[in-house]
Amino acid sequence: MSILKNVGYWLGLPILLILIWYFATLGDVSTFVPRPLPLWEKFASVWLGENILTDVVPSLGRLVLGLATSIVLGIVLGVLIGSIRAARWLSEPLLEFLRAIPSTIMIPVLLLIIGMNDQMRITVIVLGCLWPVLLNTITGVRSIDEVLSNSAKVYGIRGWKRVWHLVLPGASPSIMAGVRQSLAVGLILMVVSEMFASANGIGTLITNFQNRVAVPEMWSGVLLLGIVGVLLSAILALIQKGVLKWYDGLKAASHGN
């Protein structure tokens, strides 16, 4: 029953919108306006054929690699900066400056320095995705409860054990919030980095369609990116449900449940 309810919740409004869209565009002939059925046909022929291997998979590969690097780097640096007062004091102004730079502006710079390759595109993703994870990790580490921290100290839990048993789990709700933000930023940067200079990828293909004024194909690319975004956040939600099981329970319990 609850599964049915969930499916209805997720699909109800989209189906309704597609129906409205279908009837509203029945008589329309403008080439710039997409229509549901032709769009779906294009989507299948453009993205579910061999392009899935030559463009979609490389794009997603770069995104996953960039995200993974950002998460690992962000957590490691965040735990260090968050735990050491001197490191925080030293790095704070620099971090404020660096995070204010839109990472897309680094694409021309990185093109010159690194060249037109995957390393450049992954670097762009990392430069954008690192900050949400890093800053949220610092906040998470700093906000660990004092009594809990004292309990750990009293029982001799220090060094690596402290990081593993106290700091990381204590900061995990904040870290997960950072990862969620990074995901959205990463998807944008993945496409943008491919629009500039690339031999393959979803962004490259969409730009090619634009150059050829292949409007339905372009729209199918937009649809693909939407689907990728939804799938990624669904995967993240699943991971989060596992990692933050205790946190959800704690919240529910303290709300008098």
Binding site: D145, V147, S151, S172
Partner: peptide, 16 residues
Amino acid sequence: LAVVFQEYARSLFPWM
């Protein structure tokens, strides 16, 4: 030395 704190809800690890 072992310590039992007043704030029991904040002295146990909620993820364990």
